[in-house]
Design a protein around this nucleic acid. Structure first.
Lengths: 146, 146
DNA sequence: GTCCATGCAAATCGTTTGCATATAA
DNA sequence: TTATATGCAAACGATTTGCATGGAC
């Protein structure tokens, strides 16, 4: 059952003379099934359930491909493994992270977005994108004290 | 010649019963001599010029110490090695990076800073800090076209 | 049949750790 | 003297790569 993500990936591949393979379809399907911030490792585990013979390197190669195709984007994180999140038909947002428990809240703030446009203009830059992560203590952790 | 950074580091160490060593002084001196975004590797190279016998592990350990002492802070970066920048007597700022040539411009925007405070409150978070990196093409690269 | 993609294992990169020794207090 | 810090090398986790084989076109 071809969904719009598969269509988009196939179009991207065809355009560049690349192939629609079993492994690539499995990684995309695994990615679509996962929510939130996905590591290559969790993707690997999910993809193996669909195609047990899949290799780890292929997952790394394919998730980069998904990012290039506009289906995934890197989520900002400082420590540990790189994470990806859905990018297609998902609106842009930034992150609020609790330093204590690791909870991540996604938010969108119009004021910040437009202020960023102003900064780009100020410095003569052509905007491509941005990553922002606010860190703090969530209400629960703050209540419990540091 | 003791400067305020050395004073601050020694105070921090004394307070916690830790020692003011030759290696730590060398790393701090090397860090103060470097500008912008410093990797552990470039710090290692600079510190070796001051104290040729210094080990890489010590540099990694010491730069973390500098961050804890408030003399350095991690700069946001997605790829490659972690980078640190001066934090003491340097005001807070965010970064604007050119995707093409890698130029980094530091900026401070009051509107963004206060909008972030609003977001923290909205979600009941106690603010600790944030990292923001805007990416785009700098004026020069944009002129030359992609 | 021709390329491109795959899986594997080895290589690489940045960073951390264990440990015997050296050094600041 | 005694705890902490050091340098080395080995361990580590995440990611990338080389290469012979397999599969899509």
């Amino acid at each position: 059952m071809p969904n719009s993500e598969h269509v988009k990936l196939e179009a991207y591949l065809k355009e560049r003379g690349q192939k629609v393979t079993k492994a690539r379809k499995a990684v995309l399907r695994a990615f679509m099934e996962l929510e939130g911030h996905v590591t290559a490792d969790s993707l690997f585990a999910a993809a193996k359930k669909i195609d047990p013979g899949i290799g780890q390197a292929t997952v790394f190669r394919t998730v980069k491909l998904l990012a290039e195709a506009g289906l995934a984007r890197e989520a900002c994180q400082d420590e540990g493994a790189r994470t990806y999140e859905h990018a297609f038909r998902h609106s842009h947002h930034d992150h609020l992270r609790c330093e204590r428990c690791g909870t991540i809240v996604e938010f969108y703030d119009k004021t910040i977005e437009s202020a960023q446009e102003v900064v780009f203009k100020q410095y003569g830059f052509v905007a491509i994108g941005h990553k922002m992560e606010l860190t703090g203590l969530c209400a629960d952790c703050a209540r419990r004290g540091i």
